[in-house]
Computed example of a mutant assay.
Amino acid sequence: MLFALLCKDKPGHLNIRLETRPTHLDYLNKLNAEGKLAMAGPFLDDEGKACGSLVMVTAETAEEAKALGDADPYAKAGLFESVEVKPFNWVLNKPEA
Rank of each mutant, 00 (worst) to 15 (best):
L37R: 00
E81W: 00
L18I: 08
Y74G: 01
L44F: 14
T20N: 05
A4Y: 06
L54A: 13
N89Q: 06
G78H: 09
E96I: 08
D46F: 10
A59L: 08
A67V: 02
F43R: 03
G48F: 08
M1W: 04
E60V: 09
E63H: 01
L28P: 02
L25N: 10
V85C: 07
G52Y: 02
M56G: 13
E19W: 08
M39Y: 08
F88A: 09
P87T: 08
K76P: 10
T61C: 01
A40M: 10
M39W: 04
A77G: 02
L79E: 01
D9M: 10
Y74H: 12
A67L: 08
H13D: 07
P11Q: 13
V57N: 01
R21M: 11
F88Y: 13
T23F: 07
A75K: 02
D26V: 14
L28I: 07
F3M: 01
T20L: 07
L5S: 11
N29R: 14
A67E: 12
F3Q: 01
A40E: 10
A62R: 03
D9V: 11
G78K: 09
D46V: 11
A40L: 07
A50C: 14
E84K: 14
D70Y: 00
M1S: 14
N29H: 15
A40V: 12
L68A: 07
K10T: 01
P87F: 05
L79S: 02
D9A: 09
L6A: 07
H24R: 10
A71V: 06
G48V: 04
A62N: 00
N15M: 11
A62T: 02
D9N: 12
L25Q: 13
P95W: 06
V83T: 15
L92M: 14
A40T: 14
L92V: 14
N93V: 05
L92C: 10
G12A: 13
K8M: 01
Y27F: 13
E19D: 15
L14N: 12
G69C: 14
N32C: 09
P22A: 11
S82D: 04
T20A: 05
T61F: 00
G35T: 00
K36V: 09
L31M: 11
P95T: 08
F88V: 02
G69V: 13
A38R: 09
A75P: 00
V85W: 01
L54F: 10
C51H: 03
L6Y: 08
A97G: 13
E19S: 15
K36P: 05
P87Y: 02
N29S: 14
N15R: 13
K86W: 05
G69T: 11
A67I: 00
V91A: 14
K49M: 10
G48I: 06
D46G: 10
D70S: 05
M39T: 12
A50D: 11
S82Q: 06
K49G: 00
L44P: 05
E63W: 01
A59S: 10
W90I: 07
P42A: 13
L2H: 03
A97Y: 10
P11F: 07
G35D: 02
C7S: 11
D45W: 03
M1H: 09
A59H: 05
K86E: 06
R17Y: 05
C51Y: 01
P11Y: 03
D70G: 00
G52M: 05
L44C: 09
D70Q: 12
K94W: 08
V85I: 15
